[in-house]
């Protein structure tokens, strides 16, 4: 069967199945189990309405449970056990973690990840704030925003190719086609440099790719927040004699503090999961390893599920504070 045909069939089966499920399960509930007729009509309707939400929720909850909740626990279990031949496993306590902690590559990945966590959210938010503020003040701001936002649509792999071209290196006797080397030579560099092997600069060069992608996101959110700042507070500040920089840093930024935190944490989550960029540009060589790629290496190259799962748990651990904070806020908002 041709995959395209299979895809059409899947859409039909998936969509039809969903609609059918919801329709028929509701019919079953209202017609067969608790008919809204006869002497018990009232009671039956009440009962049907107690069950109905769960009919609506069931497919989503099943998928969420299976694809997100269960794996968290299963990964925890795998990280505490060792794979034996024949699909068996054995509990080994913290052996995998110990092994992982003894590997320099893990510490390299962790250190790099921490650097990413510092640099990428900070730079993306800063550039995003700058772009938002600048573009709100000119008439062609929307077009400018559009272009700065555009990298959001580009895959990490595509971005990796784009930036590899930027960092490309040719021998000294040829014309440079990577702009970084061209500029470097133009300003008096005597030798083209293979940038992606320069430790520790290469890690930062990879981070730039993600900053380039995430700035647009930060800009869009912050721009909306900036527009939400009450005009009166700004006008009051201007009348009080504040210059544009003071207005920006003393009046606007404090008022959108919460949004900045939101942007920051959202980008933090992206950073913790970053995999494709490193995978495509250096594959963790030259000391650019990060946790997600380290984990992929362990799981699918070394086939070491124990250590792979242990490193996945480390990522989970790093995400948890944000998770807790988000859940806490969501609960507060629901009340």
């Amino acid at each position: 069967m041709h995959p395209a045909f299979q895809a059409v069939l899947t859409i039909a089966v998936g969509v039809g199945g969903c609609v059918g499920y919801f329709y028929f399960s509701n019919q079953l509930l209202d017609r067969v189990l608790f008919p809204d007729k006869g002497i018990h009509a009232g009671r039956n309707i009440t009962r049907a309405n107690i069950i109905r939400p769960w009919l609506f929720l069931f497919p989503a909850l099943a998928a969420l449970g299976l694809y997100l909740a269960y794996p968290v626990f299963e990964t925890l279990r795998l990280s505490l056990s060792e794979r034996l031949p024949g699909n068996k496993s054995q509990y080994v306590g913290f052996d995998n973690y110990q092994q992982m902690f003894s590997e320099p590559k893990f510490w390299e990945a962790l250190t790099n990840n921490m650097l990413w966590l510092l640099v990428v959210p900070a730079l993306s938010t800063a550039f995003g704030l700058l772009a938002a503020q600048l573009s709100d003040r000119v008439r062609w701001g929307n077009i400018a925003k559009s272009f700065i936002f555009m990298p959001m649509a580009i895959s990490f792999v595509g971005a990796a190719v784009i930036w590899k071209l930027v960092y490309d290196t040719r021998p000294i006797d040829q014309e440079q086609i990577g702009v970084v080397n061209a500029v470097y030579l133009f300003f008096g560099g005597d030798q083209p440099i293979t940038w992606l092997t320069q430790i520790p600069a290469n890690s930062f060069l990879l981070m730039i790719v993600l900053v380039w992608i995430q700035t647009g996101f930060a800009m869009v959110i912050l721009s909306a927040a900036l527009r939400g700042v009450p005009e009166e507070t700004i006008e009051a500040a201007i009348i009080d004699g504040a210059n544009p920089f003071q207005v920006f840093f003393k009046i606007k930024v404090p008022q959108i503090k919460n949004t900045i935190v939101v942007v920051w944490t959202t980008i933090t989550i992206v950073v913790l999961k970053v995999f494709d960029i490193v995978f495509a540009m250096t594959n963790g060589q030259w000391e650019t390893q990060v946790l997600a790629n380290y984990m992929y290496d362990k799981l699918f190259r070394a086939q070491d599920w124990g250590v792979g799962s242990a490193s996945a748990m480390i990522i989970m651990l790093l995400v948890s504070p944000i998770l807790v904070w988000n859940v806490y806020n969501a609960r507060k908002e629901m009340q």
Partner: peptide, 21 residues
């Protein structure tokens, strides 16, 4: 309310955890 909170939580669970299981 509990379910909504749970979904907000799942929003940030790294899918890396899900690969092997």
């Amino acid at each position: 309310a509990l379910l909504v909170a749970a979904i907000v939580g799942l929003l940030v669970v790294p899918l890396q955890l899900a690969l092997i299981p």
